[in-house]
């Protein structure tokens, strides 16, 4: 168990010692800040308009600002996650350091879990930056923090699932670019799968929509913690890490 910490620490260090982490953090922060400014501007515009029309029903910060914003984050994440995971195993395979890990007295699952955890922590640090923006909402408004917390939990679940899949793909190649591109493809696919549900209601369409990561984020973004969606994300995480373990094992039988 201590080995998980050791591996995780090592991965985090190598993210933060290279420019990758800072570059991603900066990009994520800028993109999110743009969305934040945009959504807030629209919110203010709507508020002025409804005031001019003399409408009195209250506007809700959670519904009008936070919800679209976290939904945006969940989509932006699809673009960032491949960059986080692509190096996890591909780099070790290329540099030959995988031989060190595999011939050390650590279990495969410790290596895998440690790496996945490090990628999740890096992603969490992105989320932390986005959360900083919301401080302004609390300063000048009165949003409810509980649905927001659930939404962030959902973001972590969603990222955990995609990161697990990315970790798996990274074990399949020694080329980081291939790992990143393939993960990106799968992330996009898992996003657009839900679109079939828009015009088709047959069982197969429902199955496809169910497989889509973003459908399951919907209830989280509303602040609803539904066990159905938690189960989906947890099973995706377990599946991804399980496939990683199998792939790491087969690496030895094949290589």
């Amino acid at each position: 168990m201590r080995n998980i910490g050791t591996i995780c620490q090592k991965e985090l260090r190598s993210y933060f010692v290279s420019p990758i982490a800072y570059l991603l953090l900066a990009m994520f922060a800028v993109i999110f800040a743009f969305f934040f400014w945009n959504v807030l501007g629209y919110f203010v515009y709507l508020g002025m308009e409804s005031q001019m029309r003399g409408e009195m029903f209250p506007m809700n910060l959670n519904e009008e600002v936070i919800r679209p914003l976290v939904s945006n984050v969940s989509v932006i994440s699809l673009f960032f996650i491949p960059i986080i995971t692509m190096r996890l195993f591909a780099e070790e395979k290329r540099n030959g350091t995988i031989e060190l890990l595999v011939t050390s007295p650590v279990h495969d699952f410790e290596v895998i879990f440690g790496k996945w955890l490090a990628s999740l922590i890096l992603y969490a640090s992105f989320l932390f930056l986005t959360a900083l923006n919301f401080i302004w909402l609390f300063k000048y408004g009165n949003p409810d923090w509980k649905p927001m917390a659930v939404a962030y939990l959902g973001l972590l679940f969603q990222a955990g699932a995609l990161l697990a899949i990315g970790t798996f793909i990274s074990t399949l190649t020694r080329n980081q670019i291939i790992a990143g591109a393939a993960t990106f493809g799968i992330c996009l696919l898992l996003w657009v799968l839900e679109w079939v549900a828009g015009y088709e209601s047959a069982t197969w369409a429902q199955v496809l929509a169910y497989l889509s990561v973003l459908t399951h984020f919907d209830s989280f973004s509303k602040g609803l913690l539904s066990s159905k969606d938690v189960v989906y994300y947890v099973s995706a995480i377990v599946l991804g890490l399980f496939l990683t373990a199998r792939s790491m094992e087969s690496l030895r039988w094949r290589s």
């Binding site: 540099n95 030959g96 050390s104 007295p105």
Partner: peptide, 25 residues
């Protein structure tokens, strides 16, 4: 075990690398 190419994490410093290897051993 010393493989044909030493399994080094090229972004690490020497003592840090050895500490990491010591830990996983």
């Amino acid at each position: 075990y010393l493989p044909e190419t030493p399994p080094l994490y090229l972004e690490m410093r020497t003592s840090e690398y050895l500490t990491f290897v010591g830990k996983i051993k």
